[in-house]
Amino acid sequence: MAILGSFFMLNIHNAIAQDSTHNSSAKIALDFVTQDSINQVKATVTNPDANGKDTAVKGADVHFFIKKSFGLLPIGDAVSTDDNGEALAEFPMDIPGDQSGNVTVIAKIEDNEQVGNLETSKVTNWAVPTKTDHGDPKRALWASADNAPIPLVVTVTSIVALVWGTIFYILFQLAAIKKAGKLENA
């Protein structure tokens, strides 16, 4: 784990995960490459030989995913690694990411004879930034009391003011009747 940690420190762009139950030293690394203006996700799978030198793993099926809130969204079908141990998948241009267009891409190898289970993930900003509206809540009939449509508020308020203004005028007249009667007494 210490080696793994230092490796991670050195290769900040190459996040690594390992499956200790099968082959403790097989590695999978993720890279983002742009070729002919096509964005591609590249997974490189290596396995150390007897001398401890990393050698490419051929013919391993790599599954690519984009991490989403409620599951992992597959990017196409599984891709087999080539002679260089590399598997390439096209990154979907229209996938929404977070506000800065970041998404986490995951590469996975499952139940492979040579390397067992491997998984790694890495963040890219290739996704479409999502706009989250933090502006004022919309005024609507379904909005909260504070966000009632202005024309509605104005209409109701003016009708109420007009009618109750008249009612208070009448109440004032009642007071005038009482006063008129008092003067008569005097």
């Binding site: 009618v163 008249t166 009448i170 007249q173 008569e184 007494n185």
Partner: peptide, 28 residues
């Protein structure tokens, strides 16, 4: 009875008030 004495002023007020209310109550 609000000190009702039946003066012409009092009658004038209630006639006016009833007229105002009659107009108001129809749309209501």
């Amino acid at each position: 009875a609000l000190n009702w004495k039946g003066t012409s002023k009092q009658y004038a007020i209630i006639h006016k008030s009833i007229n105002v209310l009659a107009v108001l109550v129809v749309p209501l």
